[in-house]
Design a protein around this nucleic acid. Structure first.
Lengths: 336, 336
DNA sequence: CTGTTAGCGCATTCAC
DNA sequence: GTGAATGCGCTAACAG
């Protein structure tokens, strides 16, 4: 149990001043004489006075805190985004309060209720898988009705009318197709996981469409994996049985690593006769040998844009939603 | 700018009751008749009343929030710990507020000031590198003087008299030595980075001491790397020039991966004639080919213990510090 | 330049 | 069973 803090009353009493004078002196108001300011400041330092944030926030009805709701902390993508949200928020004078939904809709609803009861000034959210699957967005619509500053990033939905930060996943897919093509891959495999997610759909679509263009109408072989952790046998078998496949685009980094590993396992030479590219850039693809070429989704930019946008909304009177699209960048490494 | 929320006054007015009656009804006080309780509950649901957390907290002088201060979000170790802190906190009815120091003492001081001004009921902290280097702990000592609930984990210090959660790093190092030895490694290399950190020192010491025992007095070759990102050439050269080295213990996961990569690069056969083990278990070591044997530090347990301990402190009147030691576990993979 | 007063939204003690 | 009054710690409008 924490001891009592020094409060304004204490300072006031000891100085023989009123609370409001002390308050003004501490906020360097020009109503107060230099002399008393000095006295107040000295005592407050001596006693290590620190204003109670709760009371201040209640009074000013703002918290200088941004709520961040993300689906999964063990996903490097979200961690990178969270990191830059926190960095950018801090630069703008805001703290963050983080909740993890573990991909559950119920948690998402609960956290949003919790955070929007005065705890935060605005919200940055990436939807859970369950939310995207079930398309239940009432908890967000209510926020919008209340004009609560809300920014979605990455896992977004058209049905929610708010500011959104997304990466141009279709372009990412297209870049992958292009890069495989110019590396002289001719029969690529599209490896997919979590196809419920909008981002995944867009990557697939971008890849498939671009490939169709490049290869004058030939379509793409597709392999969907249900359980990423348990996918290696499936991928190996598939590659083994489809000898003409000479490359792959994986819609997710870990899936890319799995595919790379499997290709090498069954004797393909990477990158000589098998090229591979994955979406999303993390430690794994960088450190792996051979290192994995990726579509870098620029999580840093996504995170900082989200934080900037939510602050913009907080500070503006009319919520004018704005969609920001971040261009992904191809990163050539050894696997392609 | 958010619209006004419904508050107790609004309910009271619409029901023709007093604020206090409504308040009591909502908290299901037995002073209130069933009838009015029912009326109050119905209207509050209809209007979607939700109590203002700030006001509630100010009144009750507690927040049900735990502050978490960690040095680096891009470090998988801390992310895993943070994840389980959040999980365990939630189970106990607490939210978390997260700040990242980026290994800077100044940030650490600043965040601690910020969070302890009424924003959180207790604090879970892992010290920054700079703090451990400079041994500046005044900001913590002050907390302790004020009897503020404080738990340190992983990056701790004896000089701070508070509850601590640490892993038995010496034992981790010793286990690594033991495992290398029984895998018939006889001339291991100890690869080190960030030797300023207490955890690293303890791992080193445990390894060296155990090896001395096992190998009847022969000592260990040590290589310290200054910049992890730029260490591959250094490690490769060293291994190349020291042909009798037939294994390695790396005090950090990424360093372990680098060492593994380098060993393979210069033609060692892993694990046939070169065994390698690293401290700390993450995605990298699991997915790498060959996968890397590690000392799993049980970040989950560390995180949940930290959260449980801080809640214990918050709820108890006398702060009786308690040190919890988590035993690391060796995880056999392909590299040893 | 300083002090008095009111109120942020809520919980709680004490009358009635 | 219900309500009036008080205060959590702070800021700000208004007096003086």
């Amino acid at each position: 149990m924490a001891k009592q803090h020094i409060k304004l009353t204490d300072l006031a009493r000891q100085l023989g001043l009123s609370v409001s004078t002390v308050s003004k002196a501490l906020s360097d108001s020009n109503e107060i004489s230099y002399q008393t300011k000095k006295r107040v400041l000295e005592l407050s330092k001596a006693l290590n006075y620190r204003p109670n944030t709760l009371a201040k926030n209640l009074k000013q009805s703002r918290t200088n805190t941004i709520g961040v709701i993300i689906p999964d902390l063990l996903n490097y993508y979200f961690v990178k985004a969270l990191n830059s949200i926190q960095e950018s928020a801090e630069k703008q004078g805001y703290s963050i309060m983080t909740c993890i939904t573990n991909e559950s809709l119920d948690n998402e609803v609960r956290y949003i209720e919790m955070l929007t009861n005065g705890s935060v000034d605005g919200l940055v959210v990436a939807l859970s898988i369950e939310t995207q699957k079930k398309k239940k967005f009432d908890h967000f619509k209510q926020l919008i009705d209340n004009e609560f500053p809300l920014v979605l990033f990455d896992r977004v939905s058209d049905e929610i009318n708010c500011s959104q930060i997304i990466s141009n996943d279709a372009s990412g897919g297209a870049q992958a197709a292009h890069q495989l093509y110019i590396a002289e891959c001719r029969n690529p495999l599209l490896v997919v996981v979590n196809s419920d997610l909008e981002v995944i759909k867009r990557r697939e679509e971008g890849f498939t469409r671009k490939w169709y263009q490049l290869s004058s109408g030939s379509s793409v072989i597709r392999l969907e994996v249900l359980d990423l952790d348990d996918s290696e046998k499936e991928i190996s078998d598939f590659l083994y049985n489809n000898n003409k496949i000479d490359g792959a685009f994986a819609v997710d980094e870990r899936l890319g690593i799995k595919t790379l590993k499997c290709a090498i396992d069954i004797g393909r030479n990477v990158p000589e006769n098998f090229k591979i590219i994955a979406a999303s850039n993390g430690e794994l693809s960088k450190e792996y040998a051979p290192s994995l070429s990726v579509i870098d989704l620029q999580e840093n930019k996504i995170g900082s844009s989200a934080a900037e946008e939510v602050v913009r909304l907080i500070k503006s009177n009319v919520l004018k939603p704005k969609t920001t699209i971040i261009a992904p960048k191809f990163l050539l490494r050894q696997s392609s």
